[in-house]
Computed example of a mutant assay.
Amino acid sequence: MAEHRIPRSLRETIAAQEGVLTRQQLTHAGLPGDLVRSNVRAGRWQRVLPRVYATFTGPLTRSAQVWAALLYAGAGATVSHETAAELWGLVDQPGHGVHVTIGVDRRVRSLVGVQIHYSYRLDATRHPNRRPPVTNVEETVLDLVDQAERPQDAEMWVIRACQRRRTTPERLGIALDARKKIRWRSEVQRLLVDVSTGAESPLEITYAQRAERAHGLPPGRRQRHRRFGQQSRRSDVEYEDFRTVVELDGLTGHTEEGRFRDYQRDNDTSVRGRVTLRYGWTDTTTRSCHVAWQVAEVLKANGWQGRPRPCGPFCAVGELAA
Score class of each variant (00 low, 15 high):
Glu238Met: 08
Val40Asp: 12
Phe228Asn: 10
Gly258Arg: 12
Gln46Ala: 11
Val98Arg: 00
Glu12Gln: 13
Thr286Leu: 13
Trp45Arg: 01
Val137Cys: 10
Ile182His: 01
Gln231Lys: 15
His127Gly: 06
Ile14Arg: 09
Leu111Gln: 15
Ala77Ser: 13
Gly273His: 08
Pro133Ser: 10
Asn136Met: 10
Pro132Phe: 06
Lys180Thr: 09
Arg171Asp: 13
Ala77Glu: 04
Pro7Leu: 05
Ser232Met: 15
Gln294Trp: 03
Arg185Trp: 03
Ala214Met: 15
Gln163Arg: 14
Thr197Ser: 15
Arg5Leu: 15
Asp34Ala: 08
Arg160His: 01
Asp236Ile: 06
Arg171Ile: 03
Tyr263Val: 13
Thr269Tyr: 07
Arg274Lys: 10
Phe242His: 15
Ile116His: 12
Ser110Asp: 08
Val108Leu: 06
Gln223Met: 08
Val158His: 01
Pro313Ser: 14
Arg62Ala: 06
Gly173Met: 03
Ser201Lys: 01
Val298Cys: 00
Thr83Lys: 02
Gln115Gly: 04
Ala68Pro: 08
Gly76Trp: 04
Asp268Ala: 12
Leu71Ala: 06
Ala16His: 07
Leu192Ala: 05
Gln294Phe: 00
Thr140Trp: 00
Asp268Thr: 05
Arg272Phe: 04
Val104Phe: 02
Val137Arg: 06
Glu240Asn: 01
Arg150Pro: 00
Phe228Ser: 14
Val291Arg: 08
Ala75His: 14
Trp281Ile: 04
Arg272Gln: 11
Gly280Val: 04
Asn267Pro: 00
Ser186Cys: 05
Ser63Lys: 04
Ser232Gly: 11
Val141Glu: 11
Val20His: 11
Ser288Lys: 01
Arg11Leu: 11
Arg164Tyr: 01
Gly43Ala: 05
Asp105Cys: 11
Ala178Asp: 04
His117Trp: 15
Tyr120Leu: 14
Thr282Glu: 13
Gly198Ser: 02
Tyr118Asn: 09
Lys180Gln: 10
Glu212Gln: 15
Leu248Arg: 07
Ala2Ser: 06
Glu12His: 03
Ile116Pro: 07
Tyr72Met: 12
Ala64Met: 14
Arg44Met: 02
His96Glu: 08
Leu251Gly: 00
Asp283Trp: 03
Gln264His: 09
Ser235Asn: 04
His96Ala: 13
Gln93Asp: 09
Gly253Asp: 09
Ile6His: 07
Ile174Lys: 07
Thr22Cys: 08
Arg210Gly: 01
Arg131Glu: 10
Thr61Pro: 04
Asp283Met: 08
Arg11Ser: 07
Tyr72Ile: 12
Ser288Trp: 12
Ser270Asn: 11
Trp45Asn: 04
Thr168Cys: 07
Val195Gly: 06
Pro128Val: 04
Ser186Trp: 07
Cys162Tyr: 00
Arg278Cys: 05
His4Leu: 13
Ser270Asp: 14
Phe242Ala: 02
Glu297Gln: 08
Gly229Tyr: 03
Tyr72Gly: 07
Tyr263Glu: 13
Arg243Gly: 06
Arg51Tyr: 13
Val108Met: 06
Ser196His: 12
Val298Tyr: 00
Ala85Tyr: 06
His96Gly: 04
Trp88Phe: 02
Glu149Asn: 02
Gly33Asp: 14
Gln189Arg: 15
Val237Cys: 11
Leu176Ile: 06
Thr27Gln: 14
Tyr263Trp: 15
Leu26Tyr: 02
Val100Phe: 13
Gly113Met: 09
Cys315Glu: 11
Ser9Glu: 07
Arg265Pro: 09
Glu238Cys: 09
Ser119Thr: 04
Ala208Ile: 00
Leu111Ser: 12
Gln93Leu: 10
